[in-house]
Nucleic acid binder design. Sequence first.
RNA 1: CGGGGCGUAGCGCAGUCUGGUCAGCGCGCCUGCUUCGGGAGCAGGAGGUCGGAGGUUCAAGUCCUCUCGCCCCGACCA
Length: 584
Amino acid sequence: MIGGIDMRVSRLFFPSLRENPKEAETVSHVFMLRAGLVRKLASGIYTLLPIGYRVVKKIENIIREEMDAKGGQELFMPALQPAELWLESGRWYDYGPELMRLEDRKERTFALGPTHEEVITTLVRDNNRSYRKLPLLLYQIQVKFRDEIRPRFGVMRAREFIMKDLYSFDRDEEGMNRSYDAMYDAYCRIFKRCGLDYRVVEADSGAIGGDVSHEFMVLADTGEAEIAFCDSCGYASNLEKATDQLDPPEDAQEMDIQEVYTPNIKTIEELANFLAIDKSRTVKAVVYEAIYSGEKWNIVAAFVRGDYDINEIKLKNLLGCLYLNPATEEEVLSITPGGGGFIGPIGLKDAVVVVDESVMRMKNVVVGANKENYHLKNVNPQKDFPDDMKVADIRKVHDGSKCPKCGFPMKVRRGIEVGHIFKLGTKYSEAMNATFLDENGEKKYYVMGCYGIGVERTMAAVIEQLHDDKGIIWPMTIAPYHVIVVSVVVKDEQQRETAERIYSELINRGVEVLIDDRDESPGVKFNDADIMGIPLRVTVGKYLKEGKVELRWRRSGEVKLYSVNEIVDAVELAIKKEIDEINS
RNA sequence: CGGGGCGUAGCGCAGUCUGGUCAGCGCGCCUGCUUCGGGAGCAGGAGGUCGGAGGUUCAAGUCCUCUCGCCCCGACCA
């Protein structure tokens, strides 16, 4: 499957490191460096070394198989893209500084593609006219560029990285949904075949656009995203989008507003302590400046129940603004004389007031008085809050929040986003005027979807999940080699010959095998095999006197003795067994 | 971009505060011999314009100024 069938460690380019490199902190980054999978060229830019590249190719091939199985057709698109394409879709400005831009010698402007919606839409628009070819599922596996604000965790968030992208073109929404479901299914199979424990979550679609989207998240503490999920009913969502079940509206007698002196009490924590009440009896205020296109901006005061935080993504989507920044002190003072710490919804000047639904269900709550060192007690949102406020879901759910579907307490965990699928609808086909003719001769916009997988990131995610203190533990399906043959003492002629014989027999059987023929002490060879994560190790050593060699499983440490003429069968069987297990 | 930290041999570090045997240690690398079941021992050896540029000084890894790069924490994404 992967080229290069004869490989001995004495010739293999794998600069392994004994000590942890200073630049790496996460497990996957450390082991990728230490096992000689990658080397950094510059911040967020990596060379894939032979062992690392083998793993990448294996992951790519799994992806290819699953894409092809759903009718996907692979093509290859340029990384260098004329700026006009991006101006046409409107993303030249919307995409922001993350888009790598450059000029050629004639001062024509280009972008290095961070994604390929523009190119593919143009391609299909210019080369297909008919509904007969639909659905069209086109994909590519290639390098993409994003000028990340902060590259980190090695290959996990890089500026140049390999991505698989499939774009679906359908005649209508129903077709798009079918394509989407097929991809959803393919993605589940891909990540399973990579040996990953993952969750599919509902997601915000961000800069790509569209309404419905799912992310494939690998559970790991080093993940950059937070997800909320319910173990009872299966609800799962990116925290950016997650919501929860609210407590029923309170049914208390409404009391009269009362001003209370709260000297220098500025945080919810202090306020709850000072008044000896629960945080959920208070209302938290956060002030932002919302920036829309160009000069357009305003000040927004957002309110949630005291025990929640604001979900800035939800707020941003609600407002429809480009950026949401924390307000400066002057901005806060311009809307409330009390300054930060005493902000309440009543009596604010020139601010858009957004109140979370949770607050509207409360009675007799405590809010800031918009007056230094004072809060208001017994405020009743339904009655007392301003008429022109917006009520919406802008809260961030937390560990233990109630599942919106079944009410069970949810978990909040970190995850690595390895795949993301989107229903795009006609966003790009309309912007770029990509149409086809249906059977009635009517012009229609393509209804599109797009589906991405970060390839190196998937590799890193596997390491995050499958490792021990000795190194990587590759699943058989994506291991750089299935098995490594180690002779303990190379200078022992009998050991050397036996190892070589087993090695060439394994090659003949089509097994991906490595032989460690170096004149190193056994510990060195064992440790290199371990850190590299080869699933099986055949050790030719002290038992050879009895005509036996060992087969050792990297994952469990289990060792079995086989006679020299049984070992090749045993290896073949072990490989097949593990691959079948993962694929089943 | 804001906050924190770091650039001295391939990797990990000491030395910088308090200028003057400070060009050092461990690992790795090369040669030879002896070893060989979880990172072997002995002997010999190669390897650094101390990130870069200015400056202060009799003298600068060491002090000053500027610059470049890298890592970590926050806003973006596969």
